[in-house]
Computed example of a mutant assay.
Amino acid sequence: MQFIAYYRVSTQRQGISGLGLEAQQDIVEDYIRRQEGKLLHIYTEIESGKRDDRPQLLKALQHCQLTNSTLVVSKLDRLSRDLHFLSTVMKSGIPFICCDQPNSGTLVLQVLAAVAEEERRMISERTRLALAAAKKRGVKLGNPRLHEIRNSCMKNARGTWQKNNDEFNQAIRPVIESLQQQGFDTYTALASELNRLGFKTRYGRQFYSATVRNILLGQDK
């Protein structure tokens, strides 16, 4: 089996120090070794598990898709604490393994993710109550630079979207060009063959002739 490893640490400090990262690596490498598998690549994310817009995870899933590999993580909470997001990964059709639950089926993983999501909700609720109590005591909440920060975040998000879009196109374009060399000489034929082979667009959808044309012409927006 071929594997793509995904590691996640919650803070920049953990990413630099390796705190928490080495343990994940040991668990994953031991699992792959016992399976006599091959580790093709590693993706490491420095991000909160609460958020779903994680570019390194997107790259890992795309890599799995393009190489017919299995995504492997050390623990379920390294993938996500959000049930909806975990379900989306499951529905993508990309196989994945959680080393702490290697023999669990989809139903068990969904139950475990639901429990993790409930824990996150309870933490958020306690935080909300604490903020409400602080406000009642007269503590000023909020950031006067909120509008400026929001605009900056939106600008960064647009830049990240375009970068991810370009990277996906660069990854899938050689596949399309290879199909062209095999005789698939129209956009419609290329789209049909990509769908038959199980490839998905960056958004997890099927390919259409216009999708293929835009990728090849560098116009995919």
Rank of each mutant, 00 (worst) to 15 (best):
F3D: 00
R13C: 01
I16G: 04
S17K: 10
G18W: 05
L21V: 06
Q25E: 14
V28C: 02
Q35D: 05
E36P: 03
L39Q: 07
L39F: 08
I42H: 07
Y43P: 01
E45Y: 04
K50C: 03
R54F: 04
R54G: 02
L58M: 15
K59W: 10
L61Q: 03
H63I: 09
Q65C: 08
L66A: 11
T70W: 07
L71N: 06
S74T: 04
R78Q: 06
H84G: 02
S87V: 13
S87I: 12
P95G: 03
I97K: 02
I97Y: 01
Q101M: 13
N103V: 05
L107S: 11
L107Y: 05
Q110T: 10
L112C: 01
A113M: 06
A116S: 13
R126E: 02
A132P: 01
K135C: 00
P144T: 07
L146M: 03
K155R: 05
N156E: 10
A157V: 08
G159E: 14
T160D: 06
K163N: 10
D166M: 11
E167Q: 05
F168V: 14
P174M: 09
S178I: 05
Q180W: 15
G183V: 09
F184E: 01
T186F: 04
T188D: 08
S192Q: 15
E193T: 06
L194G: 11
G198S: 09
G198E: 10
R202W: 03
G204H: 09
R205I: 11
Y208C: 13
R213M: 14
L217K: 14
L217S: 15
D220C: 14
